[in-house]
Amino acid sequence: MSVLRNRRGALRVLLATAFAAVTAPVVAAAAPRPRTAPAPAERGGHAHRDPRRRPGAPGAADAYGAPGAEAVFDEIYRGRRIHGFRGRTRVAAPGDGVRWHVTVDDRPLHLMRRADGSYLSTVDHYGSHPTPREAARAAVDQLLPGERLSGLSHGFGAGAPVPPGAGGASRGGGHGVHA
C-alpha cells in the first residue's frame, strides 16, 4: 500500500478498490426499494421498518422476566412504561459485568455503556446518563405521542441474546448491554 501511495493519484485507486468491496451490495441494490436484508445486517442486529415484524410485541417483557433476570425498576414515566431487568449471570465485560435489559412500552431499548460507567441508548447516541433508568427516561423524553421503539441496535456489541418476541434477534442478534 505504501508503494501505491507514493505514486501520484494512487490513493484514489486505493479508495476505489476499498469502496468497490464495501459498496458491492449498494450497487446491486440499485432498485426502487431498499433491499430488505442488506449485507451489513448479516453482521449485526438492526431493525428495518417492516410492518410484518413488530418488535417487542406484547409478551416481550415477560420474556425478560424469565429465569436469569430480575426486574429492578418498573415505572410509568410520561405515560410510558419503563421496565429495567438486571441479568443474574455475570459476563466477561468491562465494568461490573452485569447485563441490563430495558424496555419502553414492552419494546427493547438498546443501552450501551461508556467507559466512565454512564449509559447511552439508541435514541440518544451523543450523550450519556448515570443510570439505565435515567437513560430510559431520556429516551422517552425524545419520543412523541404514539411513537414506538423499533428495536434497532448496533452490530458490534456485547452479543447478549434478546428474548423471544423482543425483536432484533430474528435479524441476527440484537443486544443487551454489559454493565
Binding site: 449498494v26 441494490a29 442488506p38 468491562p94 448496533h154
Partner: peptide
C-alpha cells in the same frame, strides 16, 4: 436514496457504533 443506496450508509453507521464501556473494537 431512491436507488436504495442511502440506507446502506445508515446501516453501516449503526453497525459501527460500539461504545467504550463495551467489549470489542
Amino acid at each position: 436514496k431512491r436507488r436504495g443506496g442511502y440506507d446502506q450508509f445508515v446501516l453501516t453507521h449503526v453497525d459501527h457504533f460500539a461504545p467504550d464501556g463495551e467489549s470489542g473494537l
